[in-house]
Design a protein around this nucleic acid. Structure first.
Length: 270
DNA sequence: TCTTTATGGTGAG
DNA sequence: TCACCCTAAAGAT
């Protein structure tokens, strides 16, 4: 499910399954039916991911912009896949390859046709995507220094950094020993820089593994340090993990490993 | 068979 | 800050 790593995984998979082929496009649910007709039978040129957004570029047809939101899912199959569910907004089928390839999109927040300018406008509102490019550290560090809100809230701001979601924000702050309520502008430059570097590394691990795994060294069955672990012992110090609301969303932290204050644990820097 | 929950974002007030 | 959108899987009954 969707943080930045998921979208880049989907883009890569869909490029390999569909790009360069004529694609049968339909809307089993019906809500995208009129637009699907404009894409049906067209050749998909490529698929791009930026932050949590997906862009499908076609030959002689408008671009498709998809954002999964909280509940959206994109499932892909090769060979005989299942029939689409009733909620399938968009179905793409490539019969030009053997085995055939199918993708079903359900529950997206956004599924619309756009022109190139609209894609540019979407990207212009986003901060650097650490998966798309390692460049962006300076902009991120400068952006943090300008914001007074708690760093845990700021990390979800896609205009500062595109692709981080609720899991990564909790895990990244744990790894650096930063209390979630720390004002963003109270974080020193070295720590902010380390936060960017760690974000790049963790998101890329997520793309590679296909899921968010921050625990190191990898323990059997353990993927995350704090996310959704309230009341359970911290994997490093045994203290009960806490949960609180930040910006209307839950976040989790260890009160010992992430003390109030600005002291960062820079052991993650190598 | 319900009810709940979710890794997200927008727009109204 | 809150209501709301969207679907599917997991959990409760």
């Amino acid at each position: 499910m969707p943080e930045g790593h998921t979208l880049h995984r989907i883009a890569g998979r869909h490029r390999s399954l569909f790009a360069g082929h004529r694609i049968a496009v339909s809307s089993p649910q019906g809500r995208f039916a009129a637009d699907a007709e404009l894409l049906d039978g067209r050749t998909l040129r490529t698929v791009e991911a930026y932050g949590k957004h997906l862009f499908y570029r076609w030959v002689d047809a408008p671009n498709l912009h998809v954002h999964l939101g909280l509940v959206g899912t994109f499932r892909a199959f090769t060979g005989d896949g299942p029939a689409p569910t009733a909620g399938t907004r968009l179905a793409m089928v490539n019969t030009e390859t053997d085995p055939v390839a199918t993708a079903y999109l359900a529950g997206p927040m956004t599924c619309r046709l756009v022109d190139d300018d609209e894609i540019a406008a979407v990207i212009a509102k986003l901060g650097p995507d650490p998966i798309a490019s390692r460049r962006g550290r300076a902009a991120f560090v400068a952006g943090l220094a300008k914001r007074r809100k708690p760093v845990s809230a700021v990390l979800l701001d896609q205009s500062l950094l595109a692709g981080i979601g609720n899991v990564y924000r909790a895990e990244l702050l744990f790894l650096l020993g930063i209390h979630p309520a720390t004002p963003a502008d109270a974080i020193d430059e070295a720590t902010a820089s380390a936060l960017w570097d760690l974000t790049v590394d963790e998101l890329r691990i997520g793309v590679k593994l296909g899921r968010i795994v921050t625990v190191r060294p990898e323990e059997i069955g353990a993927r995350l340090y704090v996310y959704k672990r309230e009341g359970l012992p911290c994997r490093r110090c045994g203290t009960e993990i806490r949960i609180d609301e930040v910006g209307a969303r839950s976040t989790w932290w260890c009160p010992v490993c992430q003390p109030v204050g600005v002291r960062a644990n820079n052991e993650e820097q190598t």
